[in-house]
Structure formats: C-alpha cells, structure tokens
C-alpha cells in the first residue's frame, strides 16, 4: 500500500524539484527564454503546457499496449498535437489578447521536448494514474519556473508585477531584463540558484540517512559485544 502511494506521489514531486524540466533538465528552453517578458505570459504558457502534459500522458499511458512500437512517435505527435490545438482554440476564443501575445509559441508546444520526453520516458511504461501525476508535477515545475522568470524580468525590466505598475520603480526599470540578453542572464542565475539549493538539501538528506544507517550498524555491532560481555561476566 505504502509502495503504491509512493509510486503515485514520487513522480509528482520529482517533476517539481528533482527533475524540474527548466532548471534541472534544461528542457523547453525556447519558450522559457522567449515568452517570459511578463509574469502573466509565463504563467499562461506554463498552464497551457501543463494541460497538454496531463492529457497526453494519460492517453499515451492508456494506449501504451495498443500502439505498435514502430509507430509510437507519430502516434504521440498526433495525440499531443490534438491537445495543443484544443488549447489554441480555447485560448483564441476566451483569452484573445494573451493568445495574440503568446502567438506562435502555443502551436509550438507540439514540439516541446518536455512533453515528448515524458511520453517516451514515463507514460509509455507506466499506468495512467502515475502518468497523470508525472504530467501534473512536470507541468507545475515548468509553470513555476516560467512564472518566477517572468516575475523577475517584468519587475526589473518594466517595473511592474503581473501588469500592475509599481509607482516610482517603473521610472528606473532596466530594459535589458525584458530583452533577449536579460532572459539568458536571469535564466543562468536561476539555474545556479536552484541547483545549489537542491544539491544542498540533497546533501543534508543524504547525511541524515547515512547517520541513521551508521547508528543502526553501530547498534547492531554493539549488541553481540554486549552479549559477549554478559557471557564473560557469567
């Protein structure tokens, strides 16, 4: 029961931190650099990708035993393209301004390597529920990364937060941050920061578990000694 629960939760948490597609795996770099000029753009792009990830992971996992191995890539592309078209049509109808701003990057979700990578590496070999959790985790990881990048670039480059102008700050905005050079600068900085933080946490966890192991081993080796001592006393 515990293993089953772990099998569902682990893919979710891995997608956000351990295998974060943007900061750890450096996948989907093109939309990350291009559309994070504003926080709202990053958030919307992330949510659109999350929807496609969840739906495509679910369907690919459901059909994993039906799709012949030889044609799995064209089949995945067709499934992903269908969901991307759904997102494109819904956004054009209900969020026309954002749809125009994101422009070509919405149809380009089809060729986003994060989606293809998750289809090929995870949902192709796992049951629907863990695949959905993997899609959700990876999607949230991607959305968080794009939103954080968008917030930083918009704040420094335009002096606003989610489109709301911050008084005084907008007069001192550093335009370079909303230009392509600024995108690379912020991206590099966040990769360093994220990886340093994750590695530090991982080291702490490893040290803790190693300490526990050592304690258990020590206790195990101490037991026969104590028994010998007791025997000696007798």
């Amino acid at each position: 029961m515990k293993d089953r629960f772990k099998g569902v939760i682990e893919p979710f948490s891995n997608g956000i931190v351990k295998n974060n597609p943007t900061f750890r795996l450096v996948l989907g770099t093109c939309p990350t650099l291009a559309i994070t000029t504003a926080a709202l753009n990053g958030l919307t792009m992330g949510l659109a990708t999350t929807f496609v990830l969840i739906c495509s992971n679910f369907l690919i996992s459901l059909l994993r035993n039906v799709i012949p191995d030889k044609v799995r890539i064209p089949a995945y592309v067709m499934i992903i393209a269908a969901f991307v078209t759904v997102v494109d049509m819904v956004m054009a109808k209900f969020l026309p301004d954002l749809h125009k701003t994101l422009g070509l990057y919405i149809p380009l979700i089809v060729v986003n390597c994060i989606i293809m990578a998750r289809a090929e590496a995870f949902s192709n070999q796992n049951a629907p529920l863990p695949s959905v959790m993997d899609g959700l985790g990876t999607g949230i990881g991607f959305t968080l990364a794009l939103t954080v990048m968008g917030i930083i670039r918009e704040f420094l480059g335009a002096g606003s937060f989610f489109g709301i102008e911050i008084p005084y700050l907008s007069n001192y905005a550093m335009t370079i941050f909303i230009m392509p050079a600024g995108a690379f600068f912020v991206y590099g900085f966040l990769i360093v920061l994220f990886n340093a933080a994750v590695d530090a946490i991982q080291k702490k966890i490893d040290a803790k578990s190693a300490g526990q192991k050592h304690h258990v081993l020590h206790a195990e080796s101490a037991e026969p000694e104590a028994a010998n001592n007791e025997g000696g006393a007798e």
């Binding site: 039906v66 012949p68 044609v71 064209p74 393209a81 049509m89 109808k93």
Partner: peptide, 30 residues
C-alpha cells in the same frame, strides 16, 4: 501483420482526435 496494425492504430487515433477537435471547434469558433 504488424504493418496493418500500425496503420489501423494511426488511422483510429487520427479519426478520434479529429472528432474531438471538430466538437471543440463548434464551441470555440470565432
């Protein structure tokens, strides 16, 4: 044969996705 199965699966996926898209288009046409 494997070839027939591959073509049939791709054709069915294409048909189902087209049906889904046509339904979505009905509600989102501008």
């Amino acid at each position: 044969s494997e070839s027939f199965k591959a073509v049939a699966v791709l054709a069915i996926i294409a048909l189902v996705t087209s049906l889904i898209l046509s339904v979505v288009y009905r509600f989102t046409a501008i």
